[in-house]
């Protein structure tokens, strides 16, 4: 995901240097350092479990925000669709993790299980990504067919 996003940024900004790759590395190292500081600060008794809960949330946030920026960079046009679907996917993953961490996942509201909504949302999020990629595929394939006609 890092390679994909950083290459897309490099293309969007017409960057000829490795500035974007270094920025991506900096974001990851900074994120890992921030998690380490948090684990030490809260005197974590289950560092592995806490590491993962923070890491996935951080990764979802970073990927989601960068994908949203790419949507903005493409001005919401056809090329933005896959990135929009990726940002919606990581948002649903973020919500899912928060629900399981806070215990909301086990609630039942007015006879409707939150787990049912959360799990269905997760499946739908993958299918939304599939839809976004399908749009990209259809765009490329119809362009290729037009150029051959």
């Amino acid at each position: 995901m890092t390679v994909s996003i950083s290459r897309q940024f490099k293309l969007v900004f017409f960057s000829q240097t490795n500035k974007v790759a270094w920025a991506a590395l900096g974001v990851w190292l900074g994120g890992l350092a921030a998690i380490a500081v948090i684990l030490v600060a809260i005197h974590s008794e289950t560092p592995l479990a806490d590491f993962f809960s923070y890491f996935y949330l951080l990764a979802d946030t970073v990927v989601g925000l960068l994908a949203l920026y790419l949507v903005y960079a493409f001005r919401g046009r056809a090329l933005a669709i896959p990135w929009l679907t990726i940002s919606s996917f990581v948002l649903s993953d973020f919500i899912y993790i928060q629900m399981t961490e806070t215990g909301v996942y086990d609630y039942v509201m007015h006879g409707i299980s939150i787990a049912l909504l959360a799990d269905t949302l997760y499946v739908v999020a993958y299918l939304v990504v599939a839809w976004g990629c399908l749009e990209q595929y259809l765009l490329l394939r119809s362009s290729a067919d037009h150029s051959q006609a």
Binding site: D119, Y122, V123, Y126, A130, C133
Partner: peptide
């Protein structure tokens, strides 16, 4: 399997 299938669908199209 439903979750894996939906991820597989996205992977295949990609």
């Amino acid at each position: 399997g439903g979750t894996t299938l939906s991820a597989l669908t996205a992977a295949f199209i990609l």
